[in-house]
Amino acid sequence: MNEVIGDNSEVILHFDLKLEDGSAADSTRVNNKPAKMVMGDGSLTPNFEACLRGLTIGEKASFTLAANDAFGMPNPDNIYHVDRTKFAADMDLQEGMIMGFAQPDGSELPGIIRNVEGLSVTVDFNHPLAGQTVIFDVEIINVVNAK
């Protein structure tokens, strides 16, 4: 009997995340390493999880999620102007570059360099796919439901 993905399922899946123009945003197939996640563990947003609910082993599906249902809209409060002196003097800052910024709790938050002008560096901490409609293609490899 095929296990059906439900609230506490452990799911192993391949996924491809694409933008509307067909360009690849993320894929587990690049390194042929399927993703492993547990429904409700926070690794996927509720909208992505809703796409998976009810799927079974071996099933393939494709979902188109509007920006609000995927990574949300860009928030202007997540864009910061950082003094150039906060970066290493020899660092070659380029627009579009993604770099990690240390947080007080020791974690790293990725930021995208949007602009470098004189001593002002504009850093965008919104998700790189914020504001984008995404196409979520999945192939369910295995489903384990807690007994």
Rank of each mutant, 00 (worst) to 15 (best):
K86I: 05
D90E: 15
V121Q: 00
P74I: 04
M73I: 13
V82I: 11
K86H: 08
A61H: 12
P104I: 10
D77Y: 08
A67K: 12
E108N: 12
A89M: 11
Q94P: 02
I112D: 01
G118V: 10
N126H: 05
G100L: 09
A89E: 12
D92E: 10
F101W: 06
A61I: 09
D105M: 04
N75S: 13
R84L: 05
F136G: 01
A88M: 11
V82N: 03
N75T: 10
V121I: 02
L119W: 08
I98V: 14
G131Y: 01
S107T: 14
N68Y: 13
P76H: 14
K60T: 15
A61K: 12
A66L: 15
D137P: 08
V82L: 12
N78F: 08
G111S: 05
P74N: 02
G111I: 06
V116G: 01
V138A: 02
P74C: 05
P76K: 15
A89P: 00
S107R: 15
E59M: 13
G131M: 06
L65G: 01
L65I: 07
A88V: 06
P104D: 06
E59Q: 14
N75Y: 11
V116E: 03
I112L: 10
F101H: 03
P76G: 13
E59L: 10
H81C: 06
N115E: 13
P104H: 08
N68Q: 15
S120R: 06
A89Q: 11
H81K: 07
